[in-house]
């Protein structure tokens, strides 16, 4: 008679004895390093190549996009409204243009937006947008001029097209690595997040460079840099007065600095002071008042 039995095999034959925790830490570290290297290389490459795109192509692209973006309410408000504010901003732009290292084919266009966010930005084709939320708290023309010069410096440095080129290149590279997932994958999200954080360090460098060029133009325009740091003082003050303790606020802001596209406001104020002192620009000087009717002009938004 045949004898049948199930002998119990030793444990662990079908399961690796490797520590899952150790494998996890090793692979995660390798993946993060690879993503950082990949993003750095592709961003540098993409942004460097993008800067070779002639400025006139940026302008042509924006000419095509302007109307759809206005219609969608994404980019700019109707330029036929708030004509006075727009003209005043454009006059500041025109005054500051010769004070920046502007290339011949470059031109700037100031736009006013009724949005209440404390924000201004420059985009492709020399288009710049200044929000009402920012202009309404600015105490002097000098402060506004610093913001305007800062955004113009972004255009002069070709930061919008460089950001677009670097962003597209790194996004394409990351998509190749992590794949296009229809299902949400935390690993992909985490690696993309690592890539985004790495890319933000490039933005912070661009911000410092724009601050420096903008400050130089403001110093040349007014003969001093008084009021130039007001934007950052306002931002910093708003952060400090939110009821949190100094230590908590500082820790939070250090974390925000790490994850932000912009440097800390305190660092930018310090940089402005250092630059002024290094270049012999006085930080005291008579502030130029804002146009008397500015608030009235901006009330057209209501």
């Amino acid at each position: 008679m045949v004898h049948y039995e199930n002998r119990l095999p030793p444990e662990g034959i079908n399961v690796s004895r490797k520590s899952a925790g150790r494998i996890f830490l090793k692979l995660l570290a390798v993946a993060v390093v690879l993503v950082v290297v990949l993003v750095v290389v592709t961003t540098v490459l993409g942004s460097t190549l993008a800067k070779y795109v002639p400025f006139r192509y940026e302008t042509q692209l924006m000419d095509k996009l302007e109307l759809p973006l206005r219609d969608a309410g994404i980019l700019l408000d109707d330029p036929t409204q708030n004509v006075d504010v727009t003209q005043w901003l454009q006059s500041l732009v025109d005054e500051l243009t010769p004070l920046l290292p502007v290339k011949d084919d470059m031109h700037f266009k100031a736009n006013f937006s009724c949005r209440e966010d404390f924000n201004a930005f420059a985009t492709l084709g020399g288009q710049m947008v200044f929000n009402r939320g920012l202009l309404r708290v600015m105490p002097s023309e000098n402060s506004v001029a610093m913001v305007v010069a800062h955004e113009m410096a972004h255009v002069v440095h070709r930061d919008p097209i460089a950001g677009l080129g670097g962003g597209l290149a790194s996004m394409a590279a990351l998509t190749l690595v992590t794949g296009i997932n229809t299902q949400s994958s935390t690993v992909s999200s985490l690696l993309r997040g690592t890539g985004a954080l790495t890319q933000r360090s490039f933005s912070r460098k661009m911000e410092y460079a724009a601050d420096e060029a903008g400050l130089s133009a403001v110093a040349a325009r007014y003969g001093h840099t008084n009021g130039a740091d007001m934007l950052f003082r306002l931002l910093s003050g708003a952060m400090d007065n939110d009821g949190t303790s100094d230590a908590v606020a500082l820790t939070r802001r250090r974390l925000e600095q790490f994850s932000s596209t912009h440097p800390l406001d305190d660092s930018r104020i310090a940089a402005i002071e250092t630059l002024s002192s290094k270049n012999g620009w006085s930080m005291d000087g008579k502030l130029t008042p804002l146009p008397f009717n500015l608030r009235q002009w901006m009330s057209a938004c209501d």
Partner: peptide, 22 residues
């Protein structure tokens, strides 16, 4: 969650998917 995460991570590099073996 840990096994799924590690499984996804291993898929980037290849090799035995250790967390799913057990």
């Amino acid at each position: 969650y840990f096994k799924s995460f590690l499984g996804e991570l291993i898929k980037l590099f290849g090799g035995p998917v250790v967390p799913y073996e057990a």
